[in-house]
Amino acid sequence: MKPIIVRGGGDIATGTIYQLSRAGYPVLILETEKPSAIRRQVSFCEAVYEGTAVVEGLEAVRADTLKEALGTVSPQKPVVLVDPKGDSIRAVRPDAVVDAILAKRNLGTRRDMAGLTIGLGPGFTAGLDVDYVIETMRGHNLGRIITDGTAMADTGIPGAIMGYGKERVLHAPQKGRLYGRTKIGAQVKKGELIAVIQSADGQMTPVPASLDGIVRGLIRDGYPVSKGFKIADIDPRAGERENCFTISDKARCIGGSVLQLICAAEKGQLKR
């Protein structure tokens, strides 16, 4: 069985990869050389740095070549390959390609790359550059399969939890390298130091917590960031620490819609 190719290995992509793998499909994950996942504990892209990444008992491994990847990948072991441009797609000729980069724009996925192409979120047009688009905006239409047109435009404001929206996400106050002063899963108070940004001249700029809550995501130590770059995510719900280490409801919903399309295509129930 040819592997399904998923472009991107962040937390939303990982929800899709997990569901496909558990349903019996081998998955090849194409990533950048330096992924910037915030929710690192539930992102298979961490295998780029660590060699392996385990999410809810499923282990993904990094391969250094396409040959190694194809010799390793199985439904029980998704494989991560550094290939930001998707050059491997031409060689593999997969039955399905899922663009889960969530860049809010199309970074090169084309409808002719596979028998079935799926784009997650805004930046794609169903029936034009991909066959189907999956809605990624939280709300009534989350996970909806779009057969004609586009997903909702990105607002730049995360979905509200306990009345907190934009406050939940922290951005770099300046350019430099980030160094954490706490860990994912830690309980923090508003104003408490969670990270620092070291500029090129060695100056340290503090990054305080924006609200009371649990650090659900924090970019890895030493990562180079630009001013305004998303660096952390705080969950205001008390007692929800386990959520930092499990796939989110949003990622599961989107993954279920992708799996639905893959299964339908396999049975010849989709029309292009």
Rank of each mutant, 00 (worst) to 15 (best):
A37K: 07
G149R: 08
S36L: 12
K183S: 15
V98Y: 06
M113V: 00
A47W: 06
A91K: 13
R181Q: 14
I247K: 10
Q41R: 14
R22D: 02
R168T: 08
G228W: 13
Y25C: 01
S21I: 05
L170V: 02
G239T: 09
V54Q: 09
S248V: 02
G15Y: 02
D95Y: 13
V130G: 02
G255T: 07
R40Q: 15
A172N: 03
I184D: 06
M113R: 01
C45D: 15
Y49H: 12
I234S: 03
P94M: 06
V61I: 14
V6P: 03
G115W: 11
P3G: 06
I197N: 04
R7V: 08
G71S: 14
V27H: 02
E242A: 13
E59S: 12
I5R: 08
A60Y: 09
L218S: 03
I262P: 03
G8T: 11
E31Q: 13
G202M: 05
I89M: 02
A238E: 15
Q203W: 01
V54W: 00
I5D: 09
C45T: 12
C244A: 15
R216C: 10
G156V: 11
G176I: 12
G115S: 15
L261S: 05
E50F: 13
I4H: 02
A63D: 03
R252H: 10
I231T: 02
G143S: 07
R105N: 14
K104F: 00
E242N: 10
Q174G: 07
G121R: 05
D154T: 02
R220F: 06
E240D: 12
V73H: 01
I146V: 06
P84Q: 07
G121V: 06
A114F: 04
L142Q: 14
L120T: 01
D131P: 06
M113Q: 14
G149F: 03
G180Q: 10
P3L: 08
F229P: 00
G9W: 08
E56N: 11
Q19V: 07
I184S: 07
Y164G: 01
V55C: 10
E266I: 00
C244P: 09
R216S: 10
P26S: 11
D201P: 04
E192R: 13
K104I: 01
V196Q: 07
L193K: 14
I231Y: 05
E59N: 00
L81I: 05
S226W: 02
A37D: 11
P78A: 05
R241K: 15
I38W: 01
V188A: 10
I118S: 10
E266M: 04
Q76G: 02
G10I: 00
T155L: 13
A251N: 05
L102R: 04
L107Q: 08
K250R: 11
R90Y: 03
Q174I: 13
G86R: 04
A53P: 01
A160W: 08
V55R: 04
D99T: 07
E68P: 03
K190Q: 15
R138K: 14
G268F: 05
T125W: 00
T109W: 06
